[in-house]
Protein backbone atom coordinates (compact mmCIF):
# COMPACT_ATOMS: atom_id res chain seq x y z
CA UNK A 1 0.00 0.00 0.00
CA UNK A 2 2.70 2.47 1.01
CA UNK A 3 4.61 1.59 -2.13
CA UNK A 4 1.71 2.50 -4.34
CA UNK A 5 1.20 5.82 -2.72
CA UNK A 6 4.85 6.79 -3.05
CA UNK A 7 4.63 5.94 -6.71
CA UNK A 8 1.78 8.35 -7.14
CA UNK A 9 3.51 11.04 -5.24
CA UNK A 10 6.61 10.69 -7.38
CA UNK A 11 4.59 11.08 -10.52
CA UNK A 12 2.98 14.12 -8.96
CA UNK A 13 6.32 15.80 -8.51
CA UNK A 14 7.32 15.05 -12.06
CA UNK A 15 4.32 16.48 -13.70
CA UNK A 16 3.64 19.25 -11.23
CA UNK A 17 5.10 22.02 -13.38
CA UNK A 18 3.27 21.78 -16.65
CA UNK A 19 -0.19 20.97 -15.39
CA UNK A 20 -1.23 24.61 -15.28
CA UNK A 21 -3.15 24.42 -18.52
CA UNK A 22 -6.91 24.20 -17.96
CA UNK A 23 -7.61 21.24 -20.17
CA UNK A 24 -4.98 19.03 -18.55
CA UNK A 25 -6.47 16.57 -16.13
CA UNK A 26 -4.78 14.02 -14.01
CA UNK A 27 -5.79 10.39 -14.35
CA UNK A 28 -4.94 7.34 -12.34
CA UNK A 29 -4.51 4.32 -14.57
CA UNK A 30 -5.03 0.73 -13.54
CA UNK A 31 -5.28 -2.60 -15.24
CA UNK A 32 -8.00 -5.18 -15.05
CA UNK A 33 -7.95 -8.24 -17.27
CA UNK A 34 -5.30 -6.65 -19.51
CA UNK A 35 -7.37 -3.54 -20.15
CA UNK A 36 -5.92 -0.26 -18.97
CA UNK A 37 -8.42 2.09 -17.47
CA UNK A 38 -8.04 5.67 -16.43
CA UNK A 39 -10.02 7.40 -13.74
CA UNK A 40 -9.82 11.09 -12.90
CA UNK A 41 -7.86 11.67 -9.73
CA UNK A 42 -10.67 13.99 -8.69
CA UNK A 43 -12.70 10.87 -8.06
CA UNK A 44 -9.97 8.93 -6.31
CA UNK A 45 -9.81 9.12 -2.55
CA UNK A 46 -7.16 6.54 -1.86
CA UNK A 47 -5.74 3.17 -2.80
CA UNK A 48 -5.72 0.38 -0.28
CA UNK A 49 -4.46 -3.19 -0.33
CA UNK A 50 -5.11 -6.35 1.61
CA UNK A 51 -8.37 -5.33 3.14
CA UNK A 52 -10.74 -7.88 4.48
CA UNK A 53 -13.91 -7.79 2.44
CA UNK A 54 -17.11 -8.86 4.15
CA UNK A 55 -19.16 -10.66 1.49
CA UNK A 56 -22.83 -9.87 1.19
CA UNK A 57 -25.42 -12.50 0.40
CA UNK A 58 -27.95 -12.20 -2.39
CA UNK A 59 -26.28 -9.50 -4.43
CA UNK A 60 -24.80 -9.72 -7.94
CA UNK A 61 -21.39 -11.41 -7.90
CA UNK A 62 -19.53 -8.25 -8.91
CA UNK A 63 -20.47 -6.73 -5.54
CA UNK A 64 -17.68 -8.34 -3.58
CA UNK A 65 -19.02 -7.08 -0.28
CA UNK A 66 -18.37 -4.26 2.11
CA UNK A 67 -15.26 -3.08 3.86
CA UNK A 68 -14.72 -1.13 7.02
CA UNK A 69 -12.71 1.85 5.93
CA UNK A 70 -11.90 3.48 9.25
CA UNK A 71 -15.47 3.21 10.44
CA UNK A 72 -17.05 4.01 7.13
CA UNK A 73 -18.81 1.13 5.44
CA UNK A 74 -17.92 1.07 1.75
CA UNK A 75 -19.18 -1.35 -0.89
CA UNK A 76 -16.61 -2.98 -3.15
CA UNK A 77 -17.16 -3.70 -6.83
CA UNK A 78 -14.93 -6.05 -8.77
CA UNK A 79 -14.15 -4.48 -12.14
CA UNK A 80 -13.41 -7.82 -13.80
CA UNK A 81 -16.71 -9.32 -12.74
CA UNK A 82 -18.50 -6.10 -13.55
CA UNK A 83 -17.24 -6.49 -17.11
CA UNK A 84 -18.34 -10.08 -17.14
CA UNK A 85 -14.81 -11.48 -17.06
CA UNK A 86 -13.71 -14.33 -14.82
CA UNK A 87 -12.62 -13.60 -11.28
CA UNK A 88 -8.92 -13.39 -10.58
CA UNK A 89 -8.33 -14.68 -7.07
CA UNK A 90 -7.34 -11.81 -4.82
CA UNK A 91 -3.73 -11.63 -3.75
CA UNK A 92 -1.80 -9.23 -1.59
CA UNK A 93 -1.20 -7.03 -4.61
CA UNK A 94 -4.87 -6.76 -5.48
CA UNK A 95 -5.73 -3.13 -4.98
CA UNK A 96 -8.94 -1.49 -3.94
CA UNK A 97 -9.29 2.01 -5.30
CA UNK A 98 -11.71 4.04 -3.22
CA UNK A 99 -13.68 6.35 -5.49
CA UNK A 100 -15.95 9.16 -4.54
CA UNK A 101 -18.68 9.52 -7.14
CA UNK A 102 -21.05 12.29 -6.27
CA UNK A 103 -22.37 11.41 -2.83
CA UNK A 104 -21.41 7.77 -3.13
CA UNK A 105 -18.18 6.14 -2.03
CA UNK A 106 -17.32 2.82 -3.61
CA UNK A 107 -14.26 0.68 -3.76
CA UNK A 108 -13.23 -1.06 -6.97
CA UNK A 109 -10.91 -4.01 -7.04
CA UNK A 110 -8.42 -3.97 -9.90
CA UNK A 111 -5.55 -6.23 -10.90
CA UNK A 112 -2.96 -3.57 -10.28
CA UNK A 113 -2.59 0.18 -10.24
CA UNK A 114 -0.24 1.57 -12.91
CA UNK A 115 0.51 5.26 -12.67
CA UNK A 116 -0.82 8.80 -12.73
CA UNK A 117 -0.92 10.48 -16.13
CA UNK A 118 -1.51 14.06 -17.12
CA UNK A 119 -3.91 13.94 -19.99
CA UNK A 120 -5.12 16.78 -22.13
CA UNK A 121 -8.88 16.49 -22.22
CA UNK A 122 -8.86 17.54 -25.83
CA UNK A 123 -6.97 14.39 -26.81
CA UNK A 124 -9.74 12.20 -25.46
CA UNK A 125 -11.86 10.69 -28.17
CA UNK A 126 -15.03 8.63 -28.03
CA UNK A 127 -14.89 4.89 -28.51
CA UNK A 128 -16.67 3.76 -31.69
CA UNK A 129 -20.16 2.77 -30.65
CA UNK A 130 -19.85 -0.78 -31.94
CA UNK A 131 -16.74 -1.40 -29.87
CA UNK A 132 -17.99 0.41 -26.82
CA UNK A 133 -18.43 -1.42 -23.60
CA UNK A 134 -20.49 -0.64 -20.62
CA UNK A 135 -18.03 0.99 -18.28
CA UNK A 136 -16.30 3.27 -20.72
CA UNK A 137 -17.29 5.50 -23.57
CA UNK A 138 -14.10 7.42 -24.28
CA UNK A 139 -10.43 6.60 -24.71
CA UNK A 140 -7.03 8.02 -25.44
CA UNK A 141 -4.19 6.75 -27.56
CA UNK A 142 -0.92 7.45 -25.81
CA UNK A 143 2.36 8.22 -27.61
CA UNK A 144 3.88 4.94 -26.51
CA UNK A 145 1.18 3.12 -28.40
CA UNK A 146 -0.89 2.03 -25.45
CA UNK A 147 -4.57 2.77 -25.10
CA UNK A 148 -6.31 3.98 -21.97
CA UNK A 149 -10.06 3.65 -21.59
CA UNK A 150 -11.72 6.13 -19.30
CA UNK A 151 -13.84 4.63 -16.59
CA UNK A 152 -17.30 6.11 -16.61
CA UNK A 153 -17.82 6.49 -12.87
CA UNK A 154 -21.46 7.45 -13.12
CA UNK A 155 -22.11 4.38 -15.23
CA UNK A 156 -20.33 2.22 -12.71
CA UNK A 157 -22.83 2.94 -9.97
CA UNK A 158 -25.88 3.44 -12.15
CA UNK A 159 -28.65 0.92 -11.82
CA UNK A 160 -31.16 -0.11 -14.35
Amino acid sequence: MSQTITDIERVDEFSGEDSSSGSIERFLTFTSDNITFGVSTNNVIEIITSYKIRPLPMVPDYIRGIINLRGQVVPVIDIRLRMGRPLLEYTDSTCIIILSIGETSVGITVDFVAQVLDIDREDICPIPVSNRQELSSSMIHLKDGSVVLFLDCEQLIRQY
Binding site: V59, P60, P75, I157
Partner: peptide, 24 residues
Protein backbone atom coordinates in the same frame (compact mmCIF):
# COMPACT_ATOMS: atom_id res chain seq x y z
CA UNK B 1 -24.15 2.24 1.89
CA UNK B 2 -27.04 3.68 -0.12
CA UNK B 3 -25.59 2.19 -3.28
CA UNK B 4 -26.48 -1.27 -2.05
CA UNK B 5 -30.13 -0.38 -1.70
CA UNK B 6 -30.38 -0.86 -5.45
CA UNK B 7 -29.97 -4.56 -4.92
CA UNK B 8 -32.96 -4.87 -2.60
CA UNK B 9 -30.61 -5.89 0.11
CA UNK B 10 -33.25 -5.15 2.73
CA UNK B 11 -35.49 -7.76 1.21
CA UNK B 12 -32.69 -10.27 1.53
CA UNK B 13 -33.00 -9.85 5.28
CA UNK B 14 -30.07 -7.51 5.81
CA UNK B 15 -31.12 -4.42 7.69
CA UNK B 16 -27.81 -2.79 8.51
CA UNK B 17 -24.36 -3.66 9.73
CA UNK B 18 -22.09 -3.05 12.64
CA UNK B 19 -18.36 -3.00 13.13
CA UNK B 20 -17.01 -5.52 15.58
CA UNK B 21 -14.25 -4.97 18.07
CA UNK B 22 -11.67 -6.47 15.74
CA UNK B 23 -12.66 -4.19 12.88
CA UNK B 24 -14.61 -6.84 11.03
Amino acid sequence: PPYLQYFNIKEAGISSCTILGNGN
